[in-house]
Nucleic acid binder design. Structure first.
Length: 633
DNA sequence: ATAGGGTTAG
């Protein structure tokens, strides 16, 4: 299954960029030197080329010397040709078409050539064709040359051609030039649904759903694509409930939905953990027969994983004929979040050995978190090493964060700290955050202070860091320092995120509970059910964990605060609304505290329910008094 | 011909 880790030490290896190193003891490095020399000679020749004939000679030399695929040199040649006013057809166009994998620089040179000669339709056609190619993996970034070219066209007229204008908007959106996109839109005398949708997408991508929504309401015509842009826009901007609302509105108004629409809603359900809605969508897809498609399937794997139905995720995964890196990553990440580390690693091995799908950085985040949440330190080291050894992926700060988390959780705080200090590049908030989190678990106030100091500089408004540091102090009984951190928070105008738990009843209704919440219509019943449950749990041996309250108050007050935790309210409500043997599913926005965790363990056996909780990190499956997380959370 | 889609730590 999992290959033997070959690393036992906490090696702090600094990955270096793997450049081809031509020199060996037996072979001289001259071929490389020759090639570099040839390249620089060609550059000079291109720069010096005068007119078509000279350029053709240089081109021939370039081909002879084996540079037929050098986007860089050929782009230079194209630019030179354009500067000399040589018509784009046929020669420069031929130069371009001979390159098998043109990069965006070469594309830009071609487009620029056309636009400089006033052949704007041609320029746009090539622009459109470049965008089609980009989705096949060519560099996504558009050079400043392309932007320049667009402006040329913009100034040069064509404001009556709907197609040209729409293409321009699309291009500006891709360049992130929102204001310019809007300017083109404003100047248009005739707009169609594509113009409106392009602009809606532009605002949605910039995070401005308010304006996107206004445009949507104003648009005179709305088709499936326009509606879908809103549904996925809300999902991508972390507003899953609005996404669902729009989806429902769309159906009410009789607008056709398609696979793309459903992918948007799937993502919303994944964020919410809304199981009932998720199942409805999945059934819908089955009826359409498109549940096994590549994108839909990958989204479903992710959704079921995030809704706590990991077996269902696996079923979809196994049924898919075509899988890519999204599919595998979603499945691996899902298994990791459910604590099924061995399965996650096994799947990764299958991916590497049996499929032709190459893992990417996201896949490795999944693999490393799987190790971390299961305490598999040696395996984590092993996979971290293979990233660059075997898969040519240079670990990013995110991967270092995973390693710090892995070491830290396992109690190797010094090693984790050393890794932070020795990693290449500056550690970001995630890296320090992982270290701080580990300090909370192991009660190390000293290293926690170091981590927090960096975090307060890097992300002064991230409230969680203050809370965790203050909790570390509280655990150690350092109350004066707790007050100091609270003072700091007040100074910076930061307020604690209220704990919130979500429970979905069978009818698909979502019930929300906050800490100490009495606003639920059945609050009295819930309170009574909780009291009754806690009474039974105490008989079974449950003792309230008062050290989970990080306030310096009396024990009685601590117990009262513990009872108000949102997941306990959700649990009590769950017991009211389910029967013995059924599953209670809760989604929580923050980490589950130790006391709630132990209550869930006890309750799963005493109340004879399965309890599945998704917190901000992972899933806990409670059954017969035991949690699947094994203490790692 | 031009608009909407899936995986990421603490």
């Amino acid at each position: 299954m999992v290959p033997r880790p070959h690393l036992n030490t906490i090696a702090v290896t600094i990955p270096t960029a793997r450049l081809p190193i031509p020199c060996t003891a037996s072979r001289c490095c001259s071929p490389y030197i020759h090639q570099a020399a040839a390249e620089s000679q060609l550059i000079s020749a291109i720069d010096a080329s005068n007119g078509l004939l000279h350029a053709r000679e240089t081109h021939a030399r370039l081909l002879r010397l084996g540079f037929r695929d050098s986007s860089f040199l050929l782009a230079k040649l194209l630019r030179r040709l354009a500067e000399h006013g040589i018509p784009m057809d046929p020669y420069p166009r031929l130069v371009f078409s001979q390159v098998r994998h043109p990069n965006s620089f070469l594309w830009t040179s071609l487009i620029r050539g056309y636009s400089l000669r006033g052949q704007l339709q041609q320029a746009l056609l090539h622009f459109a064709s470049m965008r089609r190619h980009e989705s096949c993996g060519v560099a996504k970034s558009l050079g400043s040359g392309t932007q320049l070219h667009a402006q040329t066209i913009f100034i040069g007229g064509f404001n009556s051609d709907l197609y040209v204008q729409n293409t321009l908007i699309g291009m500006y959106v891709e360049c992130g030039e929102l204001a310019l996109a809007h300017k083109v839109f404003d100047k248009m005398s005739v707009r169609d649904v594509i113009s409106w949708t392009s602009l809606i997408v532009a605002y949605s991508r910039s995070g401005n759903m308010g304006l996107a929504g206004e445009l949507f309401e104003q648009a005179p015509e709305k088709d499936t694509v326009a509606w879908t842009a809103m549904v996925s826009g809300f999902a991508q901007n972390a507003r899953p409930r609005d996404s669902l609302t729009f989806f429902r509105r769309m159906k009410e108004e009789g607008v056709e939905t398609d696979d793309v629409t459903l992918v948007g809603v799937i993502s919303a359900c994944a964020q919410l953990g809304a199981v009932m809605e998720a199942k409805k969508i999945s059934d819908d897809l089955h009826r359409r027969g498109s549940h096994r498609g590549l994108v839909v399937g990958s989204a479903l794997v992710d959704m079921f994983g995030k809704c706590g139905l990991i077996d269902e995720a696996r079923r979809v995964f196994d049924a898919m004929e075509e899988k890519n890196v999204y599919t595998y990553s979603a499945m691996i990440v899902g298994l990791a979040a459910h604590g099924q580390a061995k399965d996650a690693l096994k799947l990764f091995e299958e991916m590497v050995t049996k499929s032709s799908v190459k893992p990417n950085r996201v896949t490795f985040v999944g693999v490393l978190t799987a190790c971390s949440h299961a305490g598999l330190v040696e395996e984590g080291h092993y996979y971290f090493e293979t990233m660059w050894d075997r898969h040519a992926i240079v670990p990013s700060a995110d991967h270092y964060a995973c390693m710090v988390d892995l070491l830290g959780r396992a109690g190797l705080l010094e090693e984790a700290h050393a890794l932070v200090n020795s990693m290449p590049g500056e550690p970001h908030g995630g890296v320090w955050g992982a270290l701080l989190g580990a300090c909370r678990i192991h009660g190390n106030a000293e290293i926690a202070e170091v981590a927090a100091e960096s975090l307060f500089k890097l992300e002064p408004h991230a409230i969680g860091n203050y809370i965790v540091l203050s909790n570390v102090y509280a655990q150690a009984g350092m109350w004066e320092k707790v007050l100091k951190v609270r003072g700091l928070m007040r100074e910076r105008g930061l307020r604690k995120n209220p704990g919130c738990s979500l429970m979905e009843t069978k009818d698909g209704a979502l019930h929300e509970f906050f800490a100490g919440d009495v606003s639920h219509p059945r609050t009295n019943e819930i309170k009574a059910a909780l009291e009754e449950l806690l009474g039974k749990l105490k008989v079974a041996g449950y003792v309230p964990n008062l050290s989970s309250v990080y306030y310096d108050v009396s024990d009685g007050e601590k117990e009262r605060l513990l009872k108000g935790h949102s997941e306990k309210l959700a649990l009590a409500f769950g017991i009211l609304t389910t029967g013995v043997g059924q599953t209670i599913r809760i989604v929580k926005n923050l980490r589950v505290c130790d006391d709630c965790h132990s209550v869930m363990c006890f309750a799963s056996s005493v109340a004879e329910r399965k309890i599945v909780i998704r917190d901000n990190l992972r899933f806990h499956h409670f059954q017969d008094g035991v949690c699947s997380c094994g203490g790692f959370w």
